[in-house]
């Protein structure tokens, strides 16, 4: 006798309930309640009319585990057809990641470190920052973490670049259409708040764990949000009088976009790029659980094997990498800002 028998009785569904008494697999809770003598429940213990509570009253009513299993079944059913579409579509990502990993690792350190320092020097025009970067990579290499750091850097380079290439046009489209913005903002909110591990679950089903695109997609999805948001915001924040002037002088939409809106939104877009890079770094560590190489693997090893030293040093290496990436992009941002303060 369950609490909610009366619902099905009054609705006249008793026959339907008893029709399929081919009992569903028994859960642990069922087993427990069967062994213990069920005392009469007081009003205080009335259960919420949840799926499981209703299932107690009516065997035909689905249990909550049927819901999760249904979702899983549904996903597995469409998985094959989805793979047919997604696999070729995402294959270039695998190639890009493999290529980048190969390039970053095959280049000898005495070429790689100066090249990275040179890029930073060109972007930031700051001798101090360049010196710091030489020192940081030197330090990482000295403690034999150079290869791991390069793997992480290669993944970030590819994923952040793709996130920017996709994110900026999405942000521009959002800034031009209020309807698209209304649709996209909840999607972006979801991408941003979904725990990073959750991205990995459906991806593991879709792709083989040996493929780089598995973690590539996870990193891109996680990191694309800020660049989309800030591109949209940046373009919407452009002084309306300047836009009016562009119109008044007969600029076409295209001239307005490339000649006025994007240049004036550039500080915000660059802030978005900075955030995107930082978030790819965060995700690439988590993605080491699905075979992403790099410093994250060492962190994971630290947790798995309780190798405290390895985990901590790798963590500090990630911090160092984060500082390098953050400072270089911020320096670039500062230069953009200086060029167009109003």
């Amino acid at each position: 006798m369950a609490t909610y028998d009366w619902i099905f009785d009054t609705l006249g569904l008793r026959d339907w309930c008893d029709g399929s008494d081919a009992a569903a697999p028994m859960s642990m809770a069922d087993l427990m309640s069967r062994t213990g003598s069920a005392p009469d429940a007081s009003v205080w213990e009335t259960p919420f009319p949840s799926m499981d509570a209703l299932n107690d009253a009516c065997a035909s009513f689905p249990q909550s585990r049927d819901l999760t299993r249904g979702l899983e079944r549904g996903f597995l059913d469409i998985k094959d057809s989805l793979s047919v579409v997604l696999d070729p579509l995402t294959q270039p990502l695998s190639w890009a990641l493999e290529g980048a990993l190969w390039l970053f690792q095959a280049t000898p350190w005495f070429v790689m470190i100066p090249v990275l320092a040179l890029i930073v020097a060109l972007v930031s025009r700051s001798a101090r920052l360049t010196g710091f970067i030489l020192l940081a990579f030197g330090g990482l290499a000295f403690i034999n973490y150079y290869d791991y750091a390069m793997q992480t850097l290669a993944i970030i380079a590819v994923c952040a670049l793709i996130a920017v290439i996709l994110g900026v046009p999405i942000g521009i489209a959002m800034s031009r259409s209020d309807r698209l913005e209304r649709v996209m903002i909840p999607v972006l909110d979801m991408l941003q708040t979904l725990p990073p591990f959750v991205y990995l679950i459906p991806l593991i089903f879709l792709f083989s764990v040996t493929e780089p695109k598995l973690y590539g997609i996870a990193v891109i999805l996680y990191a694309i949000v800020p660049v989309v948001r800030l591109t949209n915001l940046g373009i919407r924040l452009v002084d309306p009088e300047v836009i009016e002037a562009a119109d008044a002088f007969g600029m076409t939409d295209r001239q307005k976009l490339f000649g006025v809106q994007i240049p004036l939104a550039l500080p915000n877009i660059m802030a978005g790029v900075n955030q995107t890079i930082m978030m790819s770094l965060a995700m690439v560590v988590i993605a080491s659980m699905v075979s992403a190489p790099g410093l994250g693997v060492l962190v994971l090893r630290g947790i798995r094997n309780l190798e405290l030293g390895v985990g901590l040093i790798a963590g500090l290496g990630i911090v160092l990498l984060a500082v390098i990436l953050d400072r270089s992009t911020k320096a670039a941002l500062a230069r953009v800002n200086a060029a167009q303060k109003q």
């Binding site: 002084d239 009088e241 009016e244 002037a245 008044a248 240049p263 004036l264 550039l266 167009q340 109003q342």
Partner: peptide
Amino acid sequence: TMSMVFQKFALLPH
């Protein structure tokens, strides 16, 4: 045919 001058100048800062 027409050009315009604005109150807050509306020059292109970049």
